[in-house]
Design a protein around this nucleic acid. Structure first.
Length: 419
RNA sequence: GCGGUUAUGGUGAAGUGGUUAACACAUCUGGCUGUGAACCAGACAUUCGUCAGUUCGAUUCUGAUUAACCGCCCCA
C-alpha cells in the first residue's frame, strides 16, 4: 500500500468542507478590507527564499523543500507566500501600474521540510495578506485588526493577540548590544542553544525554554527601553488605534520574529485549546521594510500576516463541533423495486435542474436501508416512490427532521424543498 | 537534524512463542417484500504497519525500515 508522504494528509467530507468554508470566510473578510487575491507559483528559484530569509543557515539548509529540476535549475517549493508575492510585485511592476499601497491576499499550500507534529505539517495551507507601500501606523493597525476580526469571524472567541515593537533598525541595534552586554558574564552558564543564539540572534534568548535561562532572562533589558522616539511614537499610535476600536491585546516584550526584515510592529494570534494543548501561534505577522527592494524593486514598506489554515481547521473541529459542516442533501430519493428505478432517476435529474441537491441509490435497497443512508447523508427530505405514487403521479415527501410525511405533486415538492 | 513513546478490523481496543486472534460499537443480511427505533438470528481481521533474523513454530523475541504522536532545534 502506498502511504501519503510524511507530513501530508488527505482532507475529505467534513474536513474538506470546513477548510473550504474557512478559506471562503477569510477571502470575504479580506475583500471587505479592500484586498484582492493574488495567485502565484508554488515553486520559485531557491535564491528568492534564501535571500528573503536572510540566508539564515537553518532555514535554507535544513527546512527548505528544494530540488534540482531536469533543466538543472535549483528550485524550492515555497515555504511561505510572502517572498513570492514580493517577487510578483517586482516582475509585474505592480507598484507602478496600480495604486499604492497594493493590498493583496493569498491562500494556498506551502512546504517546509520539518519534523511533523500535531498541527505541524510538511505541506501546510496559508492564508495571508500583504499591504505593500504603506507608510502610516494606521495601515499597520488595519492589518492587525483584519487578522483579529478574521479569527473572531471564524469562531475563535478567546484569541490572544500579542503585540510588540521591535523598533526601527537603529533601536534594534542598540537593543541587541544591550542584550549582549547583559548576558556577557552569564552566557557561560546557559544552555548550548542560548550560547549559539548569543552570537546569532540574541533576541531569541528571551524565549528560551530552559528554566534557569528563563530566570536570567527575566531581568534582561527590555526592548521598550531601547526604542528611539520615532519607534516609540509609531508603536503608541498603533496601540491608540487598537484601543479606539476596542481590540484586546497584550504587549509581549519577548515577542520577536526570527528574521531581520521585520521592524516596528510584530504580532501573533494565539489560541489555547480546551484540552490545554497550545498549538502555538495560529497566525503571525508584522511590519517589514526592504523586502521589495531585496528582490529588485523600489524601497517599499509593508505590513502583512499569515494564518495557518490547517491549524485553524483542527482547532475549530475541537472547539465548535456543533458548527462543523457536514455533507448535506436537500433530498434523498427512495423507490420500491427495480421497476421504478428509472422513474426515480428521472425525478432526480428534474430536481437537479431546479438547483436542488438530490441523490439516490441505483442499486435497489429496502426502505429501511434507504432511510439510514438518507440520514447519514444529512438529507433534509426523503422522497418515496412506489406503485401507488406512480399510478397517481404523486410523491410521498417526508421531512426527516419533523418526521411529517405528505403526498405532493411535482410542483408542490419543488416548492417545499426549495424553501 | 537530535531524543523519547507507539503501531492489532471501518472505529475503540483485549490477548498469546503453538493448530478457531476476545469483547464492544459501527456496517450489512434476514426475521419485517412501503418508512429511521427496539429486539432476535447471522455475516464481517486468509491476519496483528513493512522487511528480515532467531525458532520445529513468531502477531508475540531481536534488528532494520516506515508512519503517527511528544520534547528539542527552527519557525519564513
Amino acid at each position: 500500500m502506498i502511504l501519503p508522504q510524511r507530513g501530508t494528509y488527505d482532507a475529505f467530507y467534513d474536513d474538506a468542507l470546513n477548510i473550504e468554508k474557512i478559506e471562503r470566510i477569510m477571502g470575504e473578510m479580506a475583500h471587505n478590507y479592500g484586498y484582492t487575491p493574488i495567485i502565484i507559483p508554488m515553486y520559485e528559484a531557491i535564491e528568492l527564499f534564501a535571500r528573503s530569509a536572510g540566508e539564515t543557515s537553518d532555514i535554507v539548509t535544513k527546512e527548505m523543500f528544494d530540488f534540482v529540476d531536469k533543466g538543472g535549475r535549483h528550485i524550492a517549493l515555497r515555504p511561505e507566500l510572502t517572498a513570492g508575492v514580493m517577487r510578483a510585485i517586482v516582475t509585474n511592476k505592480l507598484y507602478a501600474n496600480y495604486d499604492l499601497p497594493l493590498k493583496l491576499s493569498y491562500c494556498g499550500p506551502a512546504f517546509r521540510y520539518e519534523r511533523p507534529q500535531a498541527g505541524r505539517f510538511r505541506q501546510l495551507t496559508q492564508f495571508g495578506i500583504e499591504n505593500v507601500g504603506v507608510t502610516t501606523p494606521q495601515e499597520d493597525a488595519e492589518a492587525i485588526i483584519l487578522g483579529y476580526k478574521i479569527t473572531k469571524k471564524l469562531g475563535f472567541e478567546h484569541v490572544i493577540l500579542k503585540i510588540n515593537s521591535i523598533g526601527d533598525q537603529e533601536s534594534r541595534d542598540a537593543y541587541r548590544e544591550a542584550l549582549r552586554e547583559y548576558f556577557k558574564d552569564k552566557i557561560g552558564d546557559m544552555c548550548e542553544d542560548c550560547r549559539r543564539r548569543y552570537e546569532l540572534n540574541p533576541l531569541r534568548i528571551l524565549d528560551c525554554k530552559v528554566p534557569y535561562d528563563q530566570e536570567l532572562a527575566k531581568n534582561a533589558p527590555k526592548m521598550s527601553d531601547y526604542l528611539n522616539d520615532v519607534s516609540k511614537k509609531r508603536f503608541q499610535d498603533i496601540i491608540n488605534i487598537l484601543d479606539a476600536n476596542e481590540i484586546e491585546y497584550v504587549i509581549d516584550d519577548g515577542l520577536v520574529r526570527g528574521l531581520d526584515y521585520y521592524s516596528h510592529i510584530v504580532f501573533e494570534f494565539h489560541y489555547i485549546s480546551k484540552n490545554g494543548t497550545n498549538l502555538g501561534a495560529i497566525g503571525a505577522g508584522g511590519h517589514y521594510d526592504n523586502l521589495v527592494k531585496e528582490v529588485g524593486g523600489p524601497e517599499l514598506s509593508s505590513v502583512g500576516f499569515a494564518l495557518g489554515v490547517d491549524r485553524l481547521n483542527s482547532l475549530l473541529k475541537e472547539i465548535k463541533p456543533e458548527e462543523y459542516a457536514h455533507p448535506t442533501l436537500d433530498a434523498y430519493i427512495m423507490y420500491m423495486g427495480e421497476d421504478y428505478r428509472d422513474y426515480a432517476s428521472k425525478l432526480a435529474f428534474r430536481l437537479r435542474e431546479d438547483n436542488i441537491a438530490v441523490d439516490l441509490n441505483y442499486t435497489n435497497k429496502s426502505f429501511k436501508a434507504s432511510f439510514k443512508i438518507a440520514l447519514r447523508k444529512h438529507a433534509r427530505f426523503a422522497i418515496i416512490i412506489g406503485e401507488d405514487e406512480v399510478k397517481k403521479n404523486v410523491y410521498q415527501l417526508k421531512n426527516l427532521e419533523t418526521q411529517e410525511q405528505i403526498e405532493v405533486s411535482l410542483e408542490e415538492l419543488i416548492k417545499i424543498v426549495k424553501e
